[in-house]
Design a protein around this nucleic acid. Structure first.
Lengths: 339, 339
DNA sequence: TTGTACGCGTTATCAA
DNA sequence: TTGATAACGCGTACAA
């Protein structure tokens, strides 16, 4: 690829390759003048050290990987931003891998990363947390791993996450306090970590308020837009709920659209609250009550933990949970207040 | 990093490193049984070929870079998705670099990529397109470059972009047809490619409709949320516009919020249309008229062009524009129709 | 302060 | 079908 290498540069200057090499490091074992001369010539010849040779030589890549289940929603966008910023501050490059909610994809990515391609991994889990053999590879290879948002219960690693149980409890309670009696829980997969934890908050809030829990009020959806819509429409007709707590933004949006199309009035006939990082939730019709996670901060913190481990040359093995609190922002979709 | 290398694996099997190496390629110059034996042992020892040694040896990295001005908005998220998908389909990894609209950052990234780190670059330009010296480095290094959305006029490379002039003309015309006479153009930087082209569409539409162009109706904003709001508020008070064409989503959202706060009725008192990839534009209050770019397809196409060049081992030098048409979706924010 | 020489882990070439 | 060897480009002991 690169035609001019350290040898040619050295030859052009009548120097040895080691001297040239030194010019590009920050050691001061080189004459400042020759260093200047070398850098000058490098500029004109268009030389810069081959990164992969350096990586090989130093067995370092200055690269981390981000593995996430999906891409393009507000939560992950902001989280990635936080990770990226930390990475850049530490002089690291970032590789992004999207699993499309497929654990096998996740495993494939992890395997492909074990050859030293990255020095660390920041990840939001795609699967249900039962099999983690693909992650033990990372430990074997001494590649530190930090989870954010979604983690595997049986993997020993730090996880930066929201206080999902508390927020879900509070969100459900908020619906109850505003008069809801038939509350559905909208979830993509009730078995994965966040879907499960959030459901527990929902259930306990119901229980504590003396509202009986009905399994059929847990509406499991897919990731397909049309299927979601159909599932919700069916649930609305069958169950006649007066409120919904959505575990992810997408399901709330579908509900909103459904209500608009079907002429169901929010919040009069139906109240809605959901986990969301949407910055324009207040501009929706009606303004949408949300549980807002600190997405950027989560990414930032996860990366921070990773780089700390990296700097101490240690693999994180102890299971540790770091909670970053979400906040509930009530808006018109659950209340009768003006906005 | 990786403790077990090809030598140890070879030793453990009583084979040579070359034979082991062959087991991991798809050539059939190896006995299927020994291959099986090798892969088995690799599994138990946890061996996989060091990627950087391979990269060095083959002078290939199977990696491309995406360089974009900002991260987290719908347009770029979707575009990245398109690029990513193509990359994965071609067996490539993806490095993402965000310049925060800073050309110097862009230059720094490009320089850092010239050592063979990536085989190609997909980029949306951050600057104004006057100085491109940092990009000529790529050409020297024979690293193909493909622009999407925003390109530099003076750089010879393929650019996959929208038909921005036409869409802007049509959007402005749409406002005029709906009765607007005092239309402001909201832009972040009127000198960069898209800001400029879109402004030309705006100007020409005004001219053709016999509406005089007034320079003070071009409102230049920054990227800071609060500054945007203040700028818009001031403009509203001073100019009393009855319509706005926003070149980017963020400015339209700020306008929407401003109108809500100030009690300005949309569309009665003020009409609004903007470039946006927001999927929930129809759920805003009021539903927002948009010029929708095919973001995903743009990314996809740009990557496609790149991989084509890569497969032909050629650097793209001819300047070529590939247009992917945007569509105008009129909604309530510019008309009196119901949605 | 500079140069020599070796090895990082791989793969391609050639010979067996 | 397999093995020995050289080279990819660089950085670092060590020697000068």
């Amino acid at each position: 690829m690169s035609q001019v290498n350290i040898k040619k540069l050295a030859a052009a200057l009548g120097l040895s390759t080691s001297t040239v090499s030194r010019a590009f490091r920050n050691n001061n074992d080189i004459n400042p003048q020759t260093k200047e001369r070398i850098l000058q010539m490098a500029e004109t010849l268009g030389y810069s050290p081959n990164i992969y040779a350096s990586n090989l030589r130093e067995s370092k890549s200055k690269t981390i990987a981000i593995i996430i289940p999906e891409f393009g929603n507000n939560f992950f966008s902001q989280a990635i931003k936080g990770i990226e910023q930390q990475a850049r501050a530490n002089g690291y490059h970032t590789l992004i891998y999207v699993t499309e909610d497929d654990v096998n994809q996740e495993a494939a990515f992890v395997r492909a990363l074990c050859n030293g391609r990255v020095e660390g991994v920041v990840m939001s889990a795609s699967g249900e947390g039962l099999k983690h053999s693909h992650l033990s590879m990372l430990k074997e290879k001494k590649v530190p791993l930090v989870f954010f948002d979604r983690c595997y219960e049986d993997v020993d690693a730090t996880c930066v996450t929201g206080n999902d149980y508390d927020s879900s409890y509070a969100a459900t309670r908020h619906l109850i306090e505003n008069g809801c009696k038939r509350i559905v829980y909208l979830v993509v997969n009730k078995k994965i970590s966040i879907g499960k934890i959030r459901m527990q908050g929902y259930r306990d809030a119901l229980k504590d308020a003396g509202v009986p829990y009905d399994e059929t009020f847990v509406i499991e959806c897919t990731n397909d837009k049309d299927e979601i819509y159909a599932t919700l429409k069916d649930a609305m007709n069958r169950l006649k709920p007066d409120g919904a707590f959505a575990s992810v933004e997408r399901l709330a949006m579908a509900s909103l659209r459904l209500c608009q199309n079907e002429g169901i009035n929010i919040p009069e006939d139906f109240k809605l609250i959901c986990f969301s990082c949407l910055e324009i939730a207040d501009m929706l019709n009606p303004p949408l009550s949300t549980v807002k996670q600190p997405a950027f901060e989560m990414g930032e913190k996860a990366a921070e933990v990773l780089f700390e481990a990296l700097s101490r040359r240690e693999v994180i093995t102890k299971k540790q949970l770091i909670y970053l609190p979400s906040i509930i922002i009530p808006r018109k979709s659950t209340t009768f207040i003006n906005r």
